[in-house]
Nucleic acid binder design. Structure first.
Lengths: 349, 349
DNA sequence: GTGAAAGCGCTAACAG
DNA sequence: CTGTTAGCGCTTTCAC
């Protein structure tokens, strides 16, 4: 039981065993496996029967070696365990399933340095393409990917000038809508907590916020903009800072829902009520946002669909063996729940 | 630019190119790559220099084909986007990094049927071992894995009689502790919302709950036990059912934190207060549990460490090429926050 | 339609 | 210490 431990102990039976058993050459078995049209129907049936009977599965590595395709794509993500990433991956999975591709996972755990190292490792491991979710400093390795003509798609990092293949949501418009909604509710002192500013989506949201203010001729007040990092904790501390200003805002717009939760907790910990004392709005519409008390008004991003679109783009690129620039922006939508209130109501409180 | 599109367009340079450039045989290059001791230091340096200069990376598929090892492990999970899974994966990643292994991800999205299909696909794709997190019906394919002597580790599915390699937490003890805590607070009418009962951990938690009641000579009341499924929604509906009983409980113990959040929402929606009107306790201690208002008292599972231990076991098995039965149970710990209150206080409310 | 055979890039056993 | 070589399991011409 430790004699045959040398190689590939698992799929022990090979194409040759099948060929012998079916009385054909192994080339023919290969044709059957690959649905080649040049096989007599009768032969095909016989071979298939043997394949089933023997439980032949085929060696992926051998196939990949000769064909140059691994049928695996790499997925580079900052972290797991946020509903945000989970929903995107659901979309990716969905599309991959239809073309029988597998997913190799590379989690950077937010250590920027790891990203470019992973890219090499990823190319080396022979994946056919890669999806980069919320990449940190893609510029470093994007050039490499491009020069290799290695298929990739960026998700949620449409750097303002980036022309490469990317999918994202209408961050600018979404932030604009949220801000305008608050303005229409009568708010004039609207604070904004940004995401990590090296991410395109964060920059665009800030721009949308500013544009809405400008459209309504509300002067931009720098002290009402706090730099956050998409984590709950900075939402919490940001709200504390904001609420301690002499000229405190009447509404806080957080760049994502997690930070909005932090804001809600901070506000509550100060003994204030939402939306009674202050209105709060988020971005993403992750699952939990409908579960909080009060429900969080937020900008919905079609995350699963973003995953789907990114995968479709990648598949197309892998098929044509070329990188096709072009970015897709999926529409966001304001989801109103109970965390915002007209300003009059707040003043009368 | 579409001529050379046949195979392996990316790592174009091979061991042979390196050998030619370094003026050695390619066998020697292979030795250098594999840190074979039988290489003159000078030769080794020269080859390494060429490897760096040419940017040689090596073809994983070819290596895997001949060596029979892919340096990839498979991870089968029900779903993504829950903090629970994310923390376990963090632990897995951590251990894998040290031995330079990659992770192939198979998400079942809670479709039971997919599990056993994935197992075949997974063996076929040549992973060296597999970690199964919260598997649904592992019995179906566990036998197959065992007969193939395919290294695997179960996480959080210590079926009561399962002897195979597994890691989990002290579910029984954790549930016992939580229940006893409530009893010591004076509660006598303690409800319990189970997890999915086909999971060993759910069964053990129920047993722990019952055992604590018994120890304190509190009769077990079937109507206070609701079957849940670890999702927030069943916590919500379970609490509604419980609170509408004529003989309603004074405390609810949910088998995980997500369901406890559902309970909290339901209770609030009925206009009741936590812990003023009812005490709530959870299980897991995911990140958000410290962020709710009030903070959720819960049983902490060392999730990241569970991922680490599982990976270590798997690595050992892959090394020795054999399945070693034995399960590891990591200790849970009661984390008290503000969602529970002594019974007297509740009655006096 | 089908068989034969040339590799894919690499490891490892065998000589020397 | 280093070169040579036999495959790993499969795809894909090239004949017939």
């Amino acid at each position: 039981m430790s004699k045959d431990s040398s190689r590939s102990q698992f799929n022990s039976i090979t194409i040759i065993d099948v060929a012998r058993e079916a009385g054909v050459s192994y080339g023919t078995v290969s044709r059957v496996i690959n649905d080649s049209p040049n096989v007599k129907e009768e032969t095909r049936e016989r071979v298939k029967e043997v394949i089933d009977r023997l439980g032949f599965v085929g060696n992926r590595n051998a196939r990949s070696l000769v064909s140059g395709k691994s049928h695996v794509i790499g997925l580079l993500i900052p972290d797991l365990g946020t509903a945000y990433i989970g929903e995107i991956i659901r979309g990716i999975d969905y599309e991959l399933e239809s073309i029988q591709y597998n997913l190799m996972l590379y989690t950077t755990h937010r250590r920027e340095m790891k990203e470019s190292g992973y890219i090499s490792s990823l190319i080396q491991s022979g994946v056919d393409g890669v999806i980069l979710i919320l990449p940190r400093n893609p510029a470093i390795y994007l050039e490499k990917l491009r020069s290799l003509n290695f298929p990739y798609v960026l998700v949620d990092h449409q750097g303002i000038d980036e022309q490469g293949p990317a999918v994202g949501a209408t961050n600018y418009q979404g932030a604009f809508d949220a801000t305008e909604y608050l303005l229409e509710l009568g708010h004039r002192r609207i604070a904004f907590i940004t995401g990590t500013m090296d991410l395109g989506c964060s920059q665009e949201r800030l721009l949308g916020y500013k544009a809405a203010l400008q459209k309504h001729q509300i002067p931009f007040t720098p002290e009402w903009v706090i730099e956050g990092d998409f984590e709950q904790a900075t939402g919490y501390s940001g709200a504390q800072t904001l609420m301690s200003l002499v000229n405190r805002p009447t509404a806080i717009f957080a760049s994502n829902d997690m930070m909005a939760f932090g804001v809600m907790n901070a506000v509550r910990d100060m003994g204030l009520k939402i939306p009674g004392d202050i209105s709060v709005i988020g971005f993403d519409d992750i699952f939990q946002s409908s579960q909080t008390m009060p429900g969080l008004t937020t900008v919905r991003q079609p995350l699963e669909q973003m995953g789907r679109e990114a995968t479709r783009m990648l598949i197309a690129m892998m098929k044509e063996n070329t990188i096709k620039p072009g970015k897709i922006e999926l529409p966001t939508r304001l989801v109103t729940r109970d965390s915002c209130k007209p300003l009059e109501a707040i003043q009368g409180n």
